[in-house]
Amino acid sequence: MDPYYWESEHGNFGDDLNLWLWDFLIPGFRDVHPETLLVGVGTVLNRALLPEGRHKLVLGSGFGYGSLPDMSHRAEWDIRCVRGPLTAQKVGIDPRLGIIDPAVMVAEMPDFRNLPKVHKKSFVPHWESAIAGMWPAVCTMVGLNYIDPRGEAKDVIRQIAQSEMIVAESMHGAILADAFRVPWISVTTSDSINSFKWNDWAQTVGVTYRPRHVPVSSRAEAIIKGARFWGVDFDTNRPALEDPNKRKIDGNVALAVQEPRQTSLRAAAKQFLAAPSALSLWQAMRASPQLSADQVLADRKDQFLHVIESVRRDYL
């Protein structure tokens, strides 16, 4: 059995954790049923992504972009659970099978238990923001630890677990924070952020997705996202709910932000232009954070573990 995940060319810890999470949850799964694709963490229930003609075992995946594949053929699809009730409704299955995003189970792994707190407050942007934004500098300005979502997945997750509070534009930043019992605040910088995905997960643990708006931090970020920056509109009329994983990012635009050979004057100018982002992020980090109830999260984990036990019985 092979695990399927979206491998972003930019790196994204929420997708990359599929590389090792399933070995913990279903030891030995790689050695059986080579005809089966394990479709796990990620917004990957998409006709354009999943191959036709191969058996697929769905464990907690979500819908959010593009169109659904035809999932009615039982010989090709074994749908044990999906990320949340909104995905279940789209797929046409019992809403009770919209259990939880499997990423929450990372908190059960020995590698991440009893980690000491190191960071007071941390910010986890969406990977698209990380590519072209000034967020490391903005975080320095407001006293936040910056966590790059493109980093090595286990390192990113440790930093989340070792924070006392998380400000998250990344959905999996909030999901992992909630799993580690770290209070979190959601923010958004553009229409690129898919509220369907967030609400799908949020409904499973009884929290509300109400992100605070933070302006983009650079002209390059505005170009990539089709957003406004200092009164200039860079909207490129992209279709709603476009899959950002498949969007082509102009490397030259991103380099304009990250190019190390900048004069101190140019760097200071960019920080000045990022001041509205810094102010909004500073205000956001002082809002009241959220956290799901302990028992609600525990119940959802138990339901997911029952699904995992049924998979072990049927496939191993």
Rank of each mutant, 00 (worst) to 15 (best):
A254T: 14
N12H: 09
P260C: 11
W22F: 12
L57V: 05
D299W: 02
D233T: 08
R313N: 14
P244K: 02
G11E: 09
S8Q: 07
I175R: 07
R181M: 03
G98W: 01
Q262W: 00
L241V: 01
F123C: 01
S292D: 03
L25V: 09
L57H: 10
L25S: 11
L97W: 06
H55G: 06
I99P: 12
T188R: 15
D235F: 04
R150Y: 05
L97M: 15
H213G: 00
R54C: 06
K197S: 08
Y4G: 06
D2L: 11
P125H: 02
A179T: 08
P95N: 07
V216G: 03
D31H: 13
P211C: 09
N194C: 13
D111S: 13
M1H: 09
I249N: 04
I185Q: 10
I223S: 01
N245L: 10
P244F: 05
P239R: 07
G66D: 09
N237I: 00
V118I: 15
D233H: 06
R247H: 12
K117N: 01
S170M: 03
L59T: 08
L50N: 10
F229S: 10
D191G: 02
Q89D: 14
Y5N: 04
Y209A: 07
K90R: 15
D302E: 14
I100T: 08
L97A: 13
T204I: 08
Q271Y: 00
E35L: 02
L25K: 10
P34L: 04
Y4N: 02
V106I: 15
E35G: 01
E7M: 10
V104Q: 04
E52Q: 15
V41M: 11
G84M: 04
E35T: 06
K154P: 00
L144V: 01
I185P: 08
V253S: 02
H73L: 09
D111G: 00
G92I: 11
D94N: 14
G226W: 06
F63R: 06
E52P: 01
